[in-house]
Amino acid sequence: MGTLYPGLMRLEQRGLVRSEWSVTEISRKARFYTITAAGRRQLAAGKAEWDRMTLIMHTLLQDQS
């Protein structure tokens, strides 16, 4: 919790997620976090970066064996 919420807040401050108070389907008050367009772009970029990284690592490790 001490890591999760500051992380969410950082994402929000960077404009990657948006949050608001709302009510769940079982009528409980909760704070809803939604990914924004910028967030989606950032996610895609991050994912691409990750894929590239794993590919590199994979290739490297295969060469070794």
Binding site: M1, G2, T3, Y5, P6, M9, R10, Q13
Partner: peptide
């Protein structure tokens, strides 16, 4: 957690 949040 509040302290961490406030800092952030």
């Amino acid at each position: 957690a509040m302290e961490a949040l406030r800092d952030q």
